[in-house]
């Protein structure tokens, strides 16, 4: 697939008036997360979590610095900061994740005699589809509903982590932080010079040139 926003990097706006000091501090901390650092997960959980993140968000192979999804989730789980409500069908988030990761490994071993992280991409996808549809029944889930865990916890947390990262904003052409500058051109097909330029077929170079000027 060709890139929609060639050459666009939302971080080029970091020193512009689209970012205030508070925002710089918050995003710097996030982009500075060590991708290998984990305190919540033990080694087995960590391997499963990383493999899971790769499957839910397959990051472009040519991306030099990958969004450290597993480390972001580990950090959230370690901090204990919740969403403000818990579906009565699920335990607390830390417990749900521990149970869920163990159960996914158990399912992988039962089906393919290997932990989840050692499965091929096709096997991983096959297993995750079954979990999403609730078609698994190992004892390891205890009273956790696999489909509910998949939709409300696993997808929710991994996808939230990804779209909190500037790399994803550059990918989808989002303007990113916007205070105090904001925007001026609001109509159809209009962009401010500090927004991503979309490539139309055959005119990728032009978009790339415009994106290099974004700042």
């Amino acid at each position: 697939m060709t890139e929609r926003y060639p050459g666009y990097n939302v971080l080029n706006k970091r020193n512009s008036v689209s970012w205030n000091e508070q925002t710089r501090a918050v995003i710097d901390a996030r982009t500075g997360i060590d991708p290998d650092f984990h305190r919540f997960c033990d080694e087995a959980e960590w391997k499963a979590l990383r493999a899971l993140c790769d499957q839910i968000i397959p990051q472009p192979a040519d991306r030099t610095v990958k969004v450290p999804l597993a480390a972001m989730i580990d950090q959230k789980l370690y901090s204990g900061k919740g969403d403000g409500y818990r579906d009565a069908r699920l335990p607390e988030q830390d417990k749900a994740w521990r149970l869920g990761l163990a159960a996914i490994d158990t399912e992988a071993v039962a089906a393919c005699e290997k932990p989840f992280s050692d499965l091929s991409n096709d096997q991983r996808r096959w297993l995750l589809c079954r979990i999403q549809r609730g078609q698994v029944s190992s004892e390891a889930w205890q009273d956790l509903s696999p489909a509910t865990f998949f939709a409300k916890r696993l997808l929710h947390d991994i996808v939230s982590a990804y779209y909190a990262h500037p790399a994803s904003w550059s990918e989808i052409g989002f303007g990113g932080p916007a205070g105090p500058r904001g925007y001026v051109r609001m109509n159809f097909d209009r962009r401010d010079p500090w927004e991503a330029a979309e490539a139309s077929p055959g005119r990728e170079d032009r978009a790339r040139r415009e994106n290099e000027r974004v700042g």
Binding site: N20, Q22, I27, A178
Partner: peptide, 10 residues
């Protein structure tokens, strides 16, 4: 003015 960032998570 001094406490808010342009960031969903924060």
């Amino acid at each position: 003015l001094e406490d808010f960032a342009s960031d969903e998570t924060h």
